[in-house]
């Protein structure tokens, strides 16, 4: 049992070390309730589809999602036919054709989401020097993930605290590092009209689009959870069996 205690102590010590490693800089976004967290978490399909609507109608004007392809939208509960119809609304560049020219054609399910700007320089030029980030992985590449996205979208303040000098064309946000953000408040009540009749409050839209972005960053989350639970069950039984085997093998050895 000495050994057991030592082992536990070692693991805890390592855990402390790792906890320190993940210590983030800047304000920590408050944790929201999400149906997709936890061992059995699954995405809220309705929220995903509403979130996609918010992305499509609001964010997509400036923010690309290069890693996502239309076919991936089957993962938020759309049918293959719906995805094909949706893709057709967009144009994508293909080619070169027989004359060596690039040409436009309607997008197909296999195509990536089209980017609003052809490249970073064009994006900066159109946005006063600020670069609207690609949102494919935003829920993974920001400390706090979707909690941060939600906090940011709902964290605008009309009046910065007294003494805070806000740059020209900048907005004050509680959760953005440095509190100065070039993106104006993107959401206001009823900015989108939800097909399912959900009232489009800022909180609702922020939550929906955060859910959508969480899915976009980890589309395999549900597969991961369901396989994970099975693997854990398997490992617990295996551990039990091996413990019994070990006990049996060692029964007549004093140690």
């Amino acid at each position: 049992m000495r050994t057991a205690k030592l082992l536990i102590a070692s693991v805890l010590a390592l855990g402390l070390g790792m906890g320190a490693a993940s210590a983030a800089v800047g304000p920590k976004a408050p944790v929201q309730e999400w149906p997709h967290t936890g061992f059995f978490g699954t995405f809220d399909r309705a929220a995903l589809q509403r979130g996609y609507q918010v992305y499509k109608e609001v964010c997509a004007a400036c923010h690309a999602m290069k890693q996502i392809r239309f076919r991936n939208l089957e993962g938020i509960g759309l049918s293959a036919a719906e995805v094909a119809a949706l893709a057709k609304e967009y144009e994508t560049t293909d080619g070169p054709n027989d004359e060596g020219e690039m040409f436009k054609r309607p997008a197909r399910a296999a195509d990536r989401f089209p980017s609003p700007f052809p490249n970073e320089l064009a994006a900066r030029a159109a946005n006063g020097g600020a670069y609207p980030l690609d949102l494919s992985l935003i829920a993974k590449n920001r400390a706090g993930g979707e909690n941060y996205v939600y906090a940011l979208l709902t964290g605008y303040r009309d009046n910065p605290p007294p003494g805070f000098v806000l740059g020209d064309g900048m907005y004050y946000n509680d959760w953005f590092a440095g509190h100065q953000i070039a993106m104006g408040p993107p959401l206001m009540a009823d900015r989108v009209t939800y097909a399912d009749g959900t009232p489009a409050t800022v909180e609702r839209m922020a939550k929906d689009v955060s859910t959508f972005l969480a899915w976009a960053a980890s589309p395999h989350l549900e597969a991961r959870n369901s396989l994970g639970v099975k693997v854990m069950l398997f490992l617990f039984i295996l551990t039990g069996l091996l413990y019994a085997t070990k006990r049996k093998v060692w029964r007549n050895i004093k140690h």
């Binding site: 490693a21 993940s22 061992f39 992985l137 590449n141 400390a143 993930g145 991961r224 693997v231 854990m232």
Partner: peptide, 17 residues
């Protein structure tokens, strides 16, 4: 397995995404 299935990002740094 706990890390692989339920906490795969904890040990990494978000900036690497």
């Amino acid at each position: 397995g706990y890390f692989v299935f339920f906490s795969p990002y904890t040990l990494g740094h978000p900036d690497n995404w």
